[in-house]
Computed example of a mutant assay.
Amino acid sequence: MSQILDPLPQDQKASLLCCYVNATSQIQIARITNIENWYFERVVFPGQRLVFEALPQAQLEIHSGMMASSILSDIIPCERLSVNNSLEEEADSALPRSGQDSRPSSSDNFRSPLETAASTKEKVILA
């Protein structure tokens, strides 16, 4: 991912793809200030998703507030915001463990599409 305005320091090889969502009703400022020779700052509107690259040791500061005031409301390690880690964990949990059968068993309450459609139709008729 290209960050034209704030490229990561050239001497750093590892980077994380991170995502932060402003789940509040206020405008927030997201900053990273703990990385030497690099400064990152973005305005994040309510409901907006901010996707950015950062170094593993970076900490995202979230500032919020009203007119002419800013309150540091949270500091989040960028490792916790990493999209790559989330995707890897989801993929690992979705894969069957070695020696396990990936097919559903009768104990999984597996129903075929026809059985599902039939039970839905019964519910509609009864209602």
Rank of each mutant, 00 (worst) to 15 (best):
F40G: 03
N37T: 12
S107W: 07
Q3W: 03
I76N: 00
E36D: 08
Q26V: 11
F40K: 02
E79S: 12
S86P: 00
A68K: 15
V21Y: 05
R49V: 14
A127Q: 15
S102C: 10
E61L: 11
G47Y: 04
H63S: 07
P77K: 01
N22Q: 07
R42V: 12
E79F: 04
Q28Y: 01
S15I: 01
W38T: 07
K121M: 13
P56Y: 09
F45Y: 12
A23E: 12
F45M: 10
A94H: 03
N109K: 06
S2E: 14
Q28R: 10
Q59F: 11
I27M: 10
S106K: 11
D74Q: 11
A23N: 14
E88V: 12
Q3M: 12
S2M: 10
E41R: 05
R97L: 12
K123L: 14
I27R: 11
L72S: 05
P46S: 02
R49N: 10
G99D: 03
V51W: 02
R97A: 11
L87K: 08
E53I: 03
L60C: 04
K121G: 02
S119H: 01
F52Q: 01
F40H: 02
Q100K: 06
C78D: 03
C19N: 05
I4T: 10
K13T: 10
A94F: 00
R111V: 08
L95P: 00
L114S: 13
R103V: 07
A68T: 13
S82C: 06
T33E: 14
A68C: 13
S105D: 04
I125T: 13
P46K: 06
S93R: 08
E41F: 04
E36K: 13
P56D: 06
E79L: 08
P56C: 03
S102P: 13
P56I: 02
Q48Y: 06
A94I: 00
A118N: 07
L55C: 08
E36N: 09
R111Q: 15
P96H: 00
D101S: 08
M66Q: 12
E115Y: 04
R42M: 10
E79H: 06
C18F: 05
W38V: 02
M1A: 12
A14G: 05
T33D: 09
D92P: 00
P77A: 01
M67D: 11
R42G: 05
T120Y: 06
I75W: 02
C19T: 06
R80K: 09
L126F: 13
R111F: 13
Q12V: 06
I27E: 08
A127N: 15
K123Y: 06
E53C: 15
S82K: 01
K13N: 13
N22E: 03
G47V: 02
Q10T: 13
V83Y: 05
S15A: 15
L72C: 07
L87R: 10
N84V: 15
Q10M: 11
A23I: 07
S102N: 11
F40Q: 01
S105E: 05
I75M: 09
S2R: 14
Q10Y: 10
A14Q: 14
S93L: 05
